[in-house]
């Protein structure tokens, strides 16, 4: 072999070593990202709604929505955005809580939280995190749709179309999950 060809052979081998590393690393990353994207379905859910309100204080009520997310994978994820529409089911109307016509009448306000990448809620592999979102009831119109308790004084909030957006820590990759809507069938008593 020509001396220059020998040098090229060494460069060729060195390039292959780097290439092999890249191929393995990229494959592992692809597997890890796919693992989370496939298995996170069902691991994110709205797990509770609380109403922080003391009617006599005159302060506007605040609805606290808890979203629990579990990272099913082997790499950390960062939740950067959770959003939904807050409704209050009217126990006196004829519509079921998920009826589209009824939902038009019970819509209170959109709710959610959005963070920049790097400032979100990091969820390490195999762990869960609860993200709490506060929705203040500000206007009279919102108050009219909010203040609809049943005969026992319990409220039945509906968290409609929740969406959870997460990034993969260390990657410029993100994905969305659409957890099932949440309905507080037993009713919530305001705290405060």
């Amino acid at each position: 072999m020509h001396p220059l060809a020998r040098i090229l052979a060494v460069a060729y081998l060195a390039l292959a070593v780097v290439g092999g590393f890249v191929l393995v690393q990229t494959s592992l990353n692809y597997v890890n990202v796919t693992d989370i994207n496939v298995n996170i379905e069902g691991k994110v859910a709205v797990t509770g709604v609380e109403i922080l309100w003391n009617r006599s204080s005159g302060v506007a009520p605040i609805v606290k929505v808890s979203v629990t997310a579990t990272n099913p994978g082997r790499i950390p994820i960062e939740a950067t955005s959770v959003d939904f529409h807050l409704h209050m089911d009217d126990p006196n109307d004829v519509y079921l809580w998920f009826d589209n016509t009824g939902l038009e009448l019970t819509r209170i306000a959109p709710g959610g939280i959005t963070k920049r990448v790097g400032q979100g809620f990091v969820i390490p592999p195999g762990t869960s995190r609860i993200i709490e979102i506060l929705v203040p009831i500000l206007s009279q119109e919102q108050m009219a749709r909010f203040d609809l308790p049943d005969a026992d004084g319990r409220y039945h909030p509906v968290v409609w179309e929740p969406r959870f957006i997460y990034f993969f820590v260390g990657f410029d990759l993100f994905n969305s999950v659409f957890p099932p809507p949440y309905y507080e069938g037993l009713g919530v008593v305001p705290i405060g």
Partner: peptide, 17 residues
């Protein structure tokens, strides 16, 4: 190995280190 690695790194840059 070289061709595949660089193809994957370029085409699937989001997954590449």
């Amino acid at each position: 190995v070289i061709v595949a690695a660089f193809f994957v790194a370029a085409f699937f840059a989001d997954f590449s280190s």
